[in-house]
């Protein structure tokens, strides 16, 4: 049963406390920890964008760094060559990344599960190799692109960590608000339906391919936004920032945090990004621990650390189904008599 969404929820107090904390944080944190919060925000954005594809619709995408790269390189190339204002490039990056998402996902949408996962890995690698090979002298090869401009709004130049803190978290909040609305809309429910049972969804008149395409484009576009922010924040980008491991980190944020769950994504990004920052001494063993965590999570907590309500119900139902199915097997073999 769904909890009544109108009921004042205890979680609201938690969100309020978090919001207050986020406002106080810049007063107490130094520049280094502000930047940690900034990158945490970028990863939350990336996690949220991948969550549309992996969490809502249940399509495995292990090449998400490619869309992130498209956004970042669009910003970098247009900013350094044509001196287009970076803030203006934000929608441009998003649209171009979404377009690439469309072109890539269009022919492969009929693939499911592992196959889709493999194709997206291949696509991600092709993008990285392309960036490395410097086609038409555009991407600068392994060295990447330097001297990307800072965002400017009415003469106010965003360049300090504090400025970025507010820019990034404003975008994160905006995204969360929009996604929350989307989640409960017709589209969001249709996405969840496709994830739970594609065939039944199609039978109910849901245009499965169109919605999957939409998810890919939205996810890619949002990753493009993150790419734009990243490029202007770093002012230098290189292909190594968009490697396969980056895709794995995003995938882990979604899967370990809780697919389809926005608080889950925050928890996942916290676990994947901020915890290693706290334990800098063990930085080498970081991926080792992640690998182990992925296995253990799948065995003991397959719906993630903070599962989505709808996902949780789906998993519970799956568990309930198991017993009657076994019983059915017994009764049918015995029922042959009559």
């Amino acid at each position: 049963m769904l909890a009544n969404p109108r009921k004042p929820n205890k979680l609201w107090y938690l969100y309020l406390a978090l919001g207050a904390g986020a406002l106080i944080y810049p007063l107490v944190a130094n520049a280094y920890w502000l930047d940690v919060a900034n990158f945490f925000g970028i990863y939350v954005l990336l996690g949220l964008s991948l969550n549309i594809i992996v969490g809502y619709v249940g399509l495995f995408n292990l090449g998400h760094a490619a869309f992130y790269a498209v956004g970042a390189y669009t910003t970098a190339i247009l900013s350094t060559r044509f001196h287009v204002p970076v803030l203006l490039l934000l929608p441009v990056s998003a649209i171009l990344a979404a377009f690439v998402g469309y072109v890539v996902s269009r022919p492969i949408l009929h693939l499911r599960g592992d196959y889709l996962c493999i194709v997206t890995i291949g696509f991600g690698e092709i993008v990285r190799i392309t960036l490395n090979n410097d086609p038409f002298g555009l991407t600068g090869g392994p060295n990447g692109i330097m001297g990307i401009a800072r965002p400017e709004l009415f003469g106010f130049r965003v360049y300090q960590p504090l400025h970025y803190y507010f820019l990034i978290w404003f975008l994160v909040l905006l995204t969360i608000f929009a996604l929350k609305r989307l989640e409960n809309s017709r589209i969001g429910r249709a996405w969840n339906y496709i994830r739970e049972d594609e065939l039944a969804a199609a039978a109910m008149g849901i245009d499965v391919n169109r919605l999957k395409l939409l998810a890919f484009m939205l996810g890619a576009g949002l990753a493009g936004v993150a790419g734009n922010i990243y490029a202007s924040k770093m002012t230098v980008i290189a292909p190594e920032s968009f490697s396969f491991w980056e895709s794995v980190v995003m995938f882990c944020i979604v899967v370990l945090g809780g697919p389809g769950s926005i608080p889950g994504i925050m928890v996942g990004a916290l676990g994947m990004f901020v915890l290693p920052e706290l334990f800098r001494g063990f930085v080498k063993a970081r991926m080792l621990v992640f690998g182990l965590a992925m296995i253990l999570m799948m065995i003991f907590r397959p719906a993630g650390l903070w599962p989505a309500q709808r996902y949780r119900e789906a998993v519970r139902e799956e568990e309930d189904k198991r017993l009657p199915a076994d019983q059915e097997l017994k009764t049918t073999s015995g029922g042959l008599k009559g």
């Binding site: 249940g58 495995f60 292990l62 599960g113 592992d114 996962c117 794995v248 995938f251 899967v255 697919p259 991926m287 080792l288 992640f290 690998g291 182990l292 965590a293 992925m294 296995i295 999570m297 799948m298 065995i299 397959p302």
Partner: peptide, 13 residues
Amino acid sequence: LAPLVSALGASIF
């Protein structure tokens, strides 16, 4: 999804 993620985790590990 579960064995896929687990396999990926094993690979990273």
